[in-house]
């Protein structure tokens, strides 16, 4: 069959559509990924969080997190009308199985998902005596588990309590922002399964990322700004009582 111009015009878009699925079906380490072209962060929209625990379960499954340890977890805040400075915070098993109903009618009740803030000036990487934890050129704080001594300095240094010592490897562990996924063009496991879109991965170096529009039009905070950690997990609609 001779391929006429008409055939080609029909075939090309079909091939383009098919190629998208070919690429999607085999997500491999992307050779086209350039460290210098990204600066990763995350947006957490507190008014959207329903505390279902999907993110916590997905994280454990994706990253083989041992039971009782958490790379991400959810806290339920109860701020009574008369003691705003002392909120009651609970996180049963990290919120992995959701939260038991509470029908407290006074004050405010809301969920706050937490994870590593991937600080640009991270206290944890500064204290590592061997250079086993570091901020990558694309803005993710990682742990080199082959190089970590397990000395726990970083666990103490993190002001957000995001690190733990893995009981199997005896090395420091934390959220890697699903580095093995985001470098392949996927979103993180927690963002993938979040049913309400309360968590969104964002690339601050990508001018087309909706994060820029969101940051312009919303009042967004980070956790513990007074510590000058350069945290890159942005919280929308966060109550002042959140620690």
């Amino acid at each position: 069959m001779d391929i006429t111009r008409r055939h080609l015009l029909v075939l090309l878009p079909a091939a383009a559509v098919a190629w998208k699925f070919v690429l999607a079906g085999t997500p491999e380490a992307s050779p086209n990924y350039k460290l210098s072209e990204h600066w990763w962060s995350m947006l957490i929209d507190i008014p959207k969080c329903i505390g279902c625990g999907s993110c916590v379960r997905a994280c454990a499954e994706e990253n083989d997190v041992p039971d009782g340890y958490f790379r991400t977890w959810i806290e339920r805040y109860h701020v009574a009308d008369w003691k705003i400075e002392r909120p009651e915070v609970e996180s049963p098993n990290g919120g992995k199985q959701g939260f038991p109903p509470n029908e407290i009618s006074d004050g405010k009740n809301f969920f706050v998902p937490k994870l590593c803030n991937h600080c640009a000036d991270s206290p944890c990487t500064q204290v590592c005596p061997v250079g086993a934890t570091f901020v990558t050129p694309d803005g993710v704080v990682l742990v080199d588990k082959n190089y970590c001594l397990g000395c726990r300095y970083c666990v103490q240094a993190c002001p957000y309590g995001c690190r733990f010592i893995n009981p199997k490897t005896n090395t420091a562990e934390k959220c890697s922002l699903c580095y093995h996924r985001i470098t392949k063009g996927l979103t993180t496991a927690c963002c993938e399964v979040c049913p309400t879109g309360a968590r969104q991965l964002a690339d601050l170096k990508n001018p087309k990322d909706p994060i820029h529009e969101f940051l312009r039009t919303h009042t967004v905070q980070i956790l513990k700004p007074h510590m000058a950690t350069g945290a890159k997990v942005f919280y929308n609609g966060m109550d002042g009582s959140v620690r």
Binding site: P27, A29, Y179, T187, A189
Partner: peptide, 28 residues
Amino acid sequence: QYGHYRGAAIAETAARPIAFAGHDVCEG
């Protein structure tokens, strides 16, 4: 290579297998 750490650790972390395929793949 990039700073006071093992540069190869970045590629090692990125090479881990994924567990969640992503909804685009499912919908294919």
